[in-house]
Design a protein around this nucleic acid. Structure first.
Lengths: 244, 244
DNA sequence: CGTGGCCTTGATGTCGGTCAAGCCAAGTGG
DNA sequence: CCACTTGGCTTGACCGACATCAAGGCCACG
């Protein structure tokens, strides 16, 4: 629906002071380059639910996610889709253009998001200019690979309970970067989406969560959840000695 | 069992004429560097079934697979393991050491293999010396990511039949690089291993293959299979419009 | 006030896991 | 050479986890 031209463009912001800069791609590049980056990038904001780009489209820009959560989806003919990754602040998406390939996923905002658009030309420039930039890319790709692998392992070897419990624990760990665990963590995924991530149907997810709430393992309110008993959750995840 | 010192070391070979060189990591580096590479690498051979390295070990070398097939496995406590990738000639394995991490998988030869051992020091050297080397690494990581993603999608959204059929088709496509499809393609995986790849148990794999043989969709003999009716196989893979 | 999403809960079905048994080929040792 | 093991494959009987189908509740929004 939203015309790309209408994508609300934020007032120009300062990369030097970008909250996610140290975590992001440009944590490592030289200060002089940062200026060129700043002039070539374009800050954007999108509401929840909006499609950032679609699988198969020409990948003429990558994006740095400054704030919010995004899902990367691979859709199958036949109404089934699989979420392959969840992105949070500081993550990079849509860089497949560096290989001349179209976007491999459909990216959809799960919350309102703010991001920086990085035109391919800029990335190419950085790649030739600063070897550490390529290194940073390499690190990101490696991390992504590792995440998808653990997803595959869980999909292949774990049962429903275990997968869901493992997800909650992963998700929690992803959200206390500061070491101090926040107990109310945002859960911007619908039951259906949890299912699409974990290879389950809505009803299964719903039942499991209902049961866990009944048993006092977790609470939920207003799009946030609180893990009350991570110990037994972890136990469920590794039931029979399986999974993370 | 095999003492690493006993790993049969082949007579020194010539990288310049390496059959997989163009496909491999060093297709792109300068001829002068190739010499230094040659002096620092170490050709190895292992019989089928041998463990090349184990998850968690210090990753002090990567390997280029010159010939044969290798499985990368992530094992779970509780007797379950998941094959996350199958490697064939020209593939690179064990490069996670570049990030100071231990090996992320256990690598096991499915056939007799020949490979080149690349000490981490050499990789570090190449990384600083030749930017195109890092680019090559990037490409490999990206391809690996893409493969694991399709695995995850299949594990998450497809049923047994569909996954197995899809695997055979992928496997076939991987083996006719020359465009001309060889009809007898090697299948160095046991039923159990097929199960570990596709998230199924031996019995399920066995039953499906037995049925397909009965129905004349495929033949099997001496560790090789022949897909007789790729059309209906493809139909099975995408049953109800799903999967590749 | 009605409509459409999302969630919940129950009833029923089925795919694939589990258990168990037997087959076959390749060792191994007497 | 034969008895015995061992490991992979097959097949059948059974069962359970999860999907499917169906109905109803809750809430936001027009």
């Amino acid at each position: 629906m939203a015309n790309p031209l209408e994508s609300p463009v934020e007032p120009q912001e300062d990369c030097q002071s970008c909250p996610v800069r140290s975590a992001a791609l440009f944590g490592e590049i030289s200060p002089e380059l940062v200026e060129r980056v700043q002039s070539a990038t374009q800050p954007l904001a999108h509401p929840a639910g909006e499609v950032l780009f679609e699988a198969g489209q020409r990948a003429d820009a990558a994006f740095t996610l400054r704030e919010g959560t995004v899902k990367l989806v691979r859709s199958q003919p036949g109404n089934r889709s699989q979420i392959v990754r969840l992105l949070v602040g500081g993550d990079l998406l849509g860089a497949e253009g560096l290989f001349g390939e179209p976007y491999q996923h459909t990216a959809i905002a799960l919350t309102p998001v703010r991001l920086c658009r990085l035109p391919m030309a800029l990335l190419e420039l950085l790649r030739t200019e600063d070897p550490r930039f390529t290194d940073a890319l390499l690190g990101r790709w490696r991390r992504a690979l590792s995440e998808v692998e653990t997803l595959a392992v869980e999909l292949g070897t774990c049962k429903a309970e275990e997968r869901l419990a493992a997800f909650f624990l992963h998700w929690q760990r992803k959200h206390d970067k500061h070491g101090d665990s926040v107990d109310w963590l945002p859960l911007p995924l619908s039951r259906t989406e949890l299912g699409e991530l974990l290879g389950l149907r809505v009803e299964t997810v719903s039942r499991l969560m209902a049961r866990w709430k009944r048993e006092g393992l977790l609470k939920e309110a207003g799009g946030k959840i609180q893990l009350l008993d991570t110990a037994t959750l972890h136990g469920t995840a590794t039931d029979e000695g399986l999974c993370t």
